[in-house]
Design a protein around this nucleic acid. Structure first.
Length: 602
RNA sequence: GGCUCUGUAGCUUAACUGGAUAGAGCACCUGACUACGGAUCAGGAGGUUGGGGGUUCGACUCCCUCCAGAGUCACCA
């Protein structure tokens, strides 16, 4: 969960580092105490001050009441630390006010730092692998995949920004009975239909035949039942089902015709996925295919047997006993010698270690597989791979709909392509109603609708803590008021407009007296670096999303209450434009970490 | 049934990992464009954080116990 460097990344903005050192000296002098738990938090807005020291943990060494302890430390800091200009005590909380000169100077440094908060990875920085998407090739992507893709992509970008080398990978489930079902249905009832002849996107076309399969399968079952067969028997003996199984056997024995059909239909799916991925704005550095990796696990099994981690039953199947860890026995290899999912995952993990020498790996997979990954990491650890402890299951909750659960068999799935298109169309109609896009070319306007529609979707999904199940309400997600992506995009666009109306160049920023609103905004800006680090260690885009929202609210309040371009003092005006510009840059950089773009006009 | 996760305003959700009076948005009320974009801002109302115990200076957060929901426990993936 924490990076290996032992770096203390939490809330490490400059002022807390300074105060930390000073307070250590203070505690030593006043109470001869060392190595105390020094706890800071931001001062709540209803109190005076910028940084608050929680003194309760220090009462042990001060041997005095909270009020008095806080007073003593407060006096010491006010006397000895130039940044501390005043303090007050409320119960056990010491609120410290930091001089506006300090904040101003910090802002100046941030302003002059390009890509403030973002840390470029060097070659020998650790490499993180992020697996996400990992689809089956028998049907198109749906809403659940969207959450998966957005999370995986965003986490990758956040890790990059936190100074890690990152590789995005996916494993494509391209073999097995599911794809054979589509294949057999297409072969029997497809009449040679292709994406070209039908105009249907490849993944949707293959999905169509997966549904067809199910239709004929059910029909055959009921026919068999009405002719007197037991249901279970019928499910096994339905001709189309037997044909699908036969096809899988043919595929496994590398039957030429079957492999050719498999390749053709999978290619349709890949072409379709590519369109979806592109529109969604996600990409991958390397794809792994199950048809390549499903044989990998066998080597591993031998290693495991040699080490005594696994054991063989009489029928030849291979198992691991995890009952000491409070889990059960788990099968690693079937008695017929074929691999199960777990075998493959072990093999793939090791393969990836050979490919990338990663230090950490994150799997973006829904929480219904929590148990699977718990077991997987445990097995890798038992096999003696020291990187196993750095594997992380980025487990996310299901996406529910207001209408109920998403079930593919009941046809209540929200298709990814349809959803994106709906979002874009909605943003189009709203933007047209508002009529602010005069002077934009058709192309530029279309790009904008795309940006807003997808921005709304992405922000809505990413702002929720990944672990929690979430409710996706299409209506609410396209509401452009409130805590939404378009709200943030709007603020960005408005700043662009403001900055472009500022006639002069932003000159060297001179010290000016800043107001409370401005100081608050500066503090929010200075939080950005630690927010990135925190989001990275927690694998949580939601932390970024919520940070941006707070920043934007802070800015809008400033914007609404303080004149910027109307300010007569040139240095003050210069500062306020610079402040606005910096906020815009952070909005842009942080939104990009979510995979969301921001427009100059909307 | 065993194990895991979730439960916060009518709805969607935050809470710096144990800190101050639990923050926001939607919806509902009240105000604000003779300043830079009103897709905005200022304010009001709305909470026994599922219930009950415990730990402590202090609990949405940790422990126990119920209640409700979800997932998982296959020679499925």
């Amino acid at each position: 969960m924490y990076d290996g460097g032992g770096v203390f990344t939490k809330r490490n903005i400059m002022i807390e580092q300074i105060l930390h050192i000073e307070i250590e000296t203070c505690l030593l002098e006043l109470y001869s105490a060392k190595n105390q738990n020094i706890q800071f938090q931001k001062t709540r807005k209803e109190f005076d001050g910028d940084v608050t020291l929680v003194v309760f943990p220090l009462l042990r060494v001060s041997k005095k009441g909270p009020e008095q302890t806080a007073q003593e430390i407060g006096h010491f800091l006010k006397e000895g630390v130039k940044e501390v200009c005043s303090f007050n005590v409320v119960k056990g909380f010491l609120n410290l006010s930091i001089s506006s000169e300090f904040w101003f100077n910090q802002f100046k440094i941030a302003y002059n730092t390009e890509e403030f908060g973002i840390q470029e990875a060097k070659k020998d920085d650790p490499t993180y692998l992020v697996e996400y998407c990992s689809p089956n090739t028998n049907k198109p992507l749906h809403l659940g995949h969207i959450r998966n893709n957005l999370l995986g992509y965003s986490v990758s970008e956040i890790l990059k920004a936190s100074g890690k080398n990152v590789k995005k990978v996916q494993i494509i489930n391209d073999r097995g009975i599911h794809i054979c079902k589509s294949m057999i249905a297409w072969k029997k009832y497809g009449n040679g239909e292709t994406p070209e002849t039908s105009g249907i996107k490849g993944d949707h076309l293959v999905g169509k035949y997966y549904v067809e399969f199910d239709k004929y399968y059910k029909k055959e079952i009921s026919e068999l039942i009405s002719s007197g067969m037991e249901e279970k028997q019928a499910e096994k003996e339905a001709p189309i089902f037997i044909q699908a199984q036969e096809m899988l056997r043919k595929w496994e024995s590398k039957d030429e015709e079957t492999v050719a059909l498999w390749k053709k239909m999978n290619q349709w799916v890949y072409d379709g996925f590519e369109v979806t991925h592109k529109r969604l704005g996600v990409d991958f550095d390397k794809n792994y295919y199950e048809s390549d990796t499903y044989l990998l696990g066998k080597k591993v099994v031998e290693i495991g047997l040699d080490k005594g981690v696994f054991y063989k039953k009489e029928d030849g199947s291979v198992w691991i006993d995890l009952s000491d860890e409070g889990l059960d026995e788990k099968i690693i290899l079937r008695s017929d010698g074929t691999a199960v999912y777990m075998t493959q995952d072990i093999g793939t993990a090791i393969q990836r270690q050979e490919d990338f020498s990663f230090s950490n790996m994150a799997y973006t997979v829904g929480n219904e597989q929590d148990y699977h990954f718990k077991v997987l990491f445990l097995i890798l650890d038992k096999l003696g791979y020291d990187w196993a402890k750095n594997c992380y299951h980025l487990s996310y909750g299901m996406v529910d709909l207001p209408t109920g659960k998403m079930k593919s068999r009941e046809g209540t799935v929200v298709d990814a392509d349809d959803l994106m298109e709906d979002m874009v169309q909605t943003s189009k109609s709203i933007a047209k109603d508002l009529g602010k896009l005069d002077g934009l070319s058709d192309k530029a306007a279309d790009d904008l609708y795309e940006m807003i529609g997808l921005g709304a979707l992405k922000y809505f999904i990413l702002k929720v803590d990944p672990r929690k199940k979430m409710m996706f309400d299409p209506k609410e997600s396209i509401d452009f008021n409130g805590h939404t992506g378009p709200f943030i995009q709007y603020t960005f666009a408005r700043i662009q407009s403001l900055v472009s109306k500022y006639n002069s160049e932003i000159s060297d920023i001179k010290f000016v007296n800043i107001k409370k609103e401005e100081q608050n905004l500066i503090k929010q800006i200075l939080d950005f670096p630690s927010v990135i680090q925190e989001a990275a260690t927690n694998y949580s885009p939601a932390l970024i999303a919520n940070y941006i929202y707070d920043l934007v609210k802070g800015y809008n309040s400033f914007y609404q209450n303080i004149t910027i371009l109307g300010e007569e003092n040139d240095e003050l005006k210069n500062f306020r434009v610079a402040l606005s510009e910096k906020v815009a840059l952070i909005i842009k950089d942080s939104m990009n970490l979510l995979g969301v773009e921001v427009p100059n006009q909307m």
